[in-house]
């Protein structure tokens, strides 16, 4: 179990190998096809199957069950709504998960704000509202160090400047122009330093920025939410046993992805819109994936 929050709580990696960082997450729009209340309670699931209250319940239970598991959460509007409904014991559990870095808050705004039509001062208001709640309710470990803008349709330099000036260490993006992305993949420039201001001094206005491999979705074939239909990892004595093919497909995807990035670390976003309503599906299969893929290291290596 991690020693403290922040970077001190990070899991050990292997400097001699390609490290694949699985990042379990749920993308919870603060209103879209349904209203905020409908999304929170899971009302009108015939419009879109989504209930954030169940997601948070389920994720907390799954994190408690296995200490190596991690989860990130972004939308404070939903988290604050859920927090009001919890008893003190649950709140203590959540505070502990945050302090140990097992539950990490990213972004930290009331919502994941748009960057095209928002006024910068309103952007500050909603960031202050979210971060203020996190600090008061969850303590000093909670306010994020990382901006998480995985779904906005384009990204503004002003928005990045706000994050830089608020002391964020980095920003991750899902949506950039498809031609831009193709070129950046070729040149291994999906990760860059964004000089966010023409008037403020560097490095105070510089922000590390990373473009995610697959918008914010899992790699093809590895979506284990109840909303997906990819096959689970079957590792028992069964005619359905698929460990060999799952492991080799995964190794193939990881190796190809690493060609677009510069270090021996890559990131995979394991989640999507309103995933983890039954978090056990995701975590049980990722537990097995990690075990079986890492077991391959033992069969000799350079």
């Amino acid at each position: 179990v991690a020693a403290g929050c922040g970077y001190k709580s990070c899991p050990p990696t292997r400097p001699d190998l390609l490290n694949v960082h699985l990042v379990p997450h749920t993308h919870d729009d603060v209103g879209w096809l349904k209203t905020v209340e409908q999304y929170f309670y899971g009302v009108r699931n015939e419009v879109q199957h989504a209930g954030v209250q169940y997601i948070l319940d389920s994720v907390v239970a799954q994190l408690v069950a296995e200490p190596t598991r991690r989860f990130i959460y972004a939308e404070v509007a939903f988290l604050a709504r859920w927090w009001q409904l919890q008893d003190e014991a649950t709140r203590d559990t959540v505070r502990q998960l945050v302090e140990q870095g097992r539950l990490e808050l990213v972004g930290g705004g009331w919502s994941m704000a748009d960057e095209a039509v928002t006024h910068y001062s309103a952007g500050l208001e909603q960031l202050g509202l979210g971060r203020g709640f996190l600090r008061r309710a969850l303590g000093p470990c909670a306010p994020p160090r990382l901006a998480w803008q995985i779904d906005p349709f384009g990204h503004s330099r002003q928005s990045a400047a706000t994050f830089a000036q608020m002391g964020y260490d980095g920003l991750f993006l899902g949506r950039v122009d498809h031609q831009d992305k193709a070129q950046r993949e070729q040149r291994r420039e999906l990760e860059l330093l964004w000089r966010t201001s023409g008037s403020l001094r560097s490095p105070g206005s510089d922000l590390f920025t990373g473009i995610l491999p697959n918008v914010y979705n899992p790699p093809t074939g590895f979506c284990w939410d109840q909303l997906c239909s990819d096959p689970p990892v079957v590792d028992g004595d069964s005619e359905e046993n698929n460990v060999a093919s799952i492991v080799s497909t995964f190794l193939d995807i990881a190796t190809k992805q690493a060609e677009h990035y510069r270090t021996n670390h890559i990131i995979m976003t394991m989640g999507s819109d309103f995933h983890y309503e039954n978090a056990n599906l995701w975590f049980k299969n990722m537990d097995k994936l990690i075990a079986h893929v890492n077991a391959q290291q033992a069969n000799g290596s350079r």
Binding site: G6, V20, L22, G170, V293, Q296
Partner: peptide
């Protein structure tokens, strides 16, 4: 893969990835 893979998978977060 029969000769041993060079891949290590782990649960992580974006900030731990950034740290690396």
């Amino acid at each position: 893969q029969a000769n041993g893979s060079r891949v290590h998978v782990l649960y992580s977060t974006p900030s731990c990835y950034l740290w690396e």
